[in-house]
Design a protein around this nucleic acid. Sequence first.
DNA 1: CTATGATTGTGCCAGAATGCACAAAGGGAG
DNA 2: CTCCCTTTGTGCATTCTGGCACAATCATAG
Lengths: 213, 213
Amino acid sequence: MSDRPSIPQPSLRRLPLYYRLVSLNHDKKLAYTSSRDLGLTANVPAARVRKDLSYLGERGRPGVGYDTELLMQRLETFLGLINDKEAVLVGVGNLGRALALYPGFARYGLKIAGLFDIDPAKIGQMVGTLKIMDQSRLPDLVRRWRIQMGIIAVPAQAAQGVAEKLIRSGISVIWNFAPVTLVVPPYVLVKDEDLAVDLATLSHQIVERDQAR
Amino acid sequence: MSDRPSIPQPSLRRLPLYYRLVSLNHDKKLAYTSSRDLGLTANVPAARVRKDLSYLGERGRPGVGYDTELLMQRLETFLGLINDKEAVLVGVGNLGRALALYPGFARYGLKIAGLFDIDPAKIGQMVGTLKIMDQSRLPDLVRRWRIQMGIIAVPAQAAQGVAEKLIRSGISVIWNFAPVTLVVPPYVLVKDEDLAVDLATLSHQIVERDQAR
DNA sequence: CTATGATTGTGCCAGAATGCACAAAGGGAG
DNA sequence: CTCCCTTTGTGCATTCTGGCACAATCATAG
């Protein structure tokens, strides 16, 4: 059925970088954006940009570039940024708090609809415009508001338990900031985010670079 | 000159995940760790794990697995985790605060040695054991302590300026949390960390999955 | 000492991703 | 209208990455 050639993973990861520049150019009221400029912000050759964008079906104008407005809309649609994604955030520690208050998410269609923690001292506190609630109220709120995404920002030991609770409540997308591999049913989409993993690869690159002298 | 077969990028990104399980098994006093188990935590087939580990030169014992202690040390060396990395963090907003207080970094050899901000109201405040300092004191501290890494957690508009200041002070590794592409000299190593980029790819995956029904 | 079961190391092939080069298309000057 | 400059779209060859299968190796039981 879906015989359209699905986009390669590496291309998909570059699209958000293109989106950054396109939004910027849109704000600057630049009518066109060239593949060369897009390549500069994503650190890839211009030909790669064009090939990536060809997966979207969007066509640029030779001699001019891509229509900024059109391309922005196309990226927003393709990346699903125009779809509202409501989420609950579990674990309001330092990281959880930062996520809850991060202003950039709104532009990407993410709206955090509820904060949960297990620490009685935190229940009732306000973070921005949201009040921290006890986890016992989570299932009810998720079902009532038909929330599809859960953000896990609890310590590693608690993460699997939270994931199971989220899934039992009907959530099928998890953005996981705990440094563990979650075990979930196949229909659940999990995106892991582990700063330590990136730190480790950076660390290796430092070693490699310094050895090269 | 350096004709050693450098490790493929995808393999490098998996190593920290292996390291997670190996550390765990080490704590559990398990003498050996199998490629099968490593594959489960990284979501890859066991054969891939073995090939990845072969880049390290480490050999497992057929019929048994990899020596947990040895493999852990090997990964720590290869990833450079045993090398202390001192860093200054610029921009103590919500994210910067969370990074400064993140407990997991120590295990990866990262030590944050100084916090800086430009907001007069924040100067002098304590975050954990560190006092927030004015950016004017940054160059001196970086030079005196021979700090090599800078962590940028300021708003997008300020990031390029901060990067230049860090580089002028002698820093050659930047962990960038601002959603911009920094322009830096070639000898400077930059690792970008953009939650919105990952959110966007997750968002696309949601669209794709939901369309598949 | 032998047989058995488990696990590693790796060669080979298929598939994915990349880089290059060039034809095609649009814009603008004269 | 024609020439020239700029930028896109993409076919092709190359390189990189992944999966599979199987021989080689080691531990253990009898």
